[in-house]
């Protein structure tokens, strides 16, 4: 009976470790990385390994101590602690933290620095609002103009103007982010009301949307999942091009990762990666035609 707590602690710790061991096999692990930000995965594993090692170590010491020094019916000793030991276990995490901070610089730079972002092939605006993503795409001609004006890495006035003032022939879509394979995408991220966070788990991309600010975000998706369905005349996702069949694991979610209100969980969107630019432009044209509908149906 005296050792009950130590056993309980031990069991919980073992279960926690076990959960991590079986997670990949159970499909609880990270979704497939279809982007180019591999640094995020590397950092994740480095941090997981470090914290995992120390978690097991400290828990083992804790469980052992509870087990070994359980109530033996004697008066307990009182200790003032050991300065040297304390210095040691403060310095080691401190150094580790510093190492991590240095390690992540390049990844952060790759993802977040506007000056390091590649020249975009595709540009659009995402406006988060309670509780949906409103997305505005330039039409094909406008897209051409913007991307060809973007010769080097600095943002042309044309793009800034498009981002600030909606245009007559923009294409407006709700909750569907469309792009094509291997395109360098530049998003102007905005919020119409409160803080939201634009989160694409498959691309390892997460960026807060802040009201009053326009934040540039970039990514490149390297795996297509969208195909034109001849029967329904719509583009559908989850298509596996290698195996030529539909595959539910190829659903790329867009989620809100910042608690933004009661409907936070409703802010679910989809990422559609078309196989090439042409297919994307076909979709864009169809979306434009839908928006231009003049027939009553």
């Amino acid at each position: 009976m005296n050792r009950l707590w130590s056993i309980l602690f031990g069991v919980v710790m073992t279960l926690a470790v076990l959960a991590f061991v079986i997670a990949p096999a159970m499909g609880w692990w990270l979704p497939e990385n279809i982007g180019t930000f591999y640094g995020v995965d590397t950092l994740f594993y480095v941090i997981l390994a470090t914290t995992g090692f120390f978690f097991v170590l400290t828990e083992a010491i804790l469980v052992y101590n509870i087990f070994a020094f359980t109530d033996r019916g004697e008066k307990a000793d009182y200790s003032h602690g050991n300065h040297r030991l304390e210095m040691f276990w403060t310095a080691v995490p401190g150094v580790l933290l510093l190492l991590l901070a240095i390690l992540q610089i390049r990844t952060w730079e790759e993802i977040k620095y506007q000056t390091r972002m590649p020249t975009p092939d595709h540009v659009f605006e995402v406006s988060a609002r309670q509780f949906e993503w409103r997305i505005r795409y330039p039409n094909a001609i406008q897209l051409d103009r913007i991307t060809s004006a973007w010769q080097d890495k600095s943002e042309p006035a044309l793009a800034r103007n498009w981002q600030q003032f909606p245009h007559y022939d923009d294409v407006h879509v709700v909750n569907e982010v469309h792009t094509w394979k291997d395109a360098n995408v530049r998003i102007y991220l905005k919020s119409k009301d409160v803080l939201h966070s634009f989160y694409l788990p498959n691309l390892r991309l997460k960026q807060d949307a802040v009201p009053g600010k326009t934040i540039p975000v970039w990514f490149r998706a390297t795996r297509a999942n969208t195909i034109y369905n001849e029967q329904t005349r719509e583009w559908v996702d989850r298509y596996n091009y290698e195996k030529k069949r539909f595959d539910s694991s190829l659903r790329y979610d867009l989620a809100c990762a910042e608690l933004c209100g009661w409907g936070h969980y409703k802010m679910l969107g989809r990422l559609f990666v078309h196989p090439d630019r042409e297919d994307y432009l076909n979709w864009l044209k169809s979306a434009q035609e839908k928006q231009r509908q003049t027939q009553a149906q």
Binding site: Q130, E132, R134, V174, N175, E176, G263, M267, L268
Partner: peptide, 14 residues
């Protein structure tokens, strides 16, 4: 499907 832009009615398009 579309929601009502400019109000709190979101899209249930998915």
């Amino acid at each position: 499907r579309q929601g009502i832009e400019g109000t709190s009615m979101p899209s249930f398009g998915l």
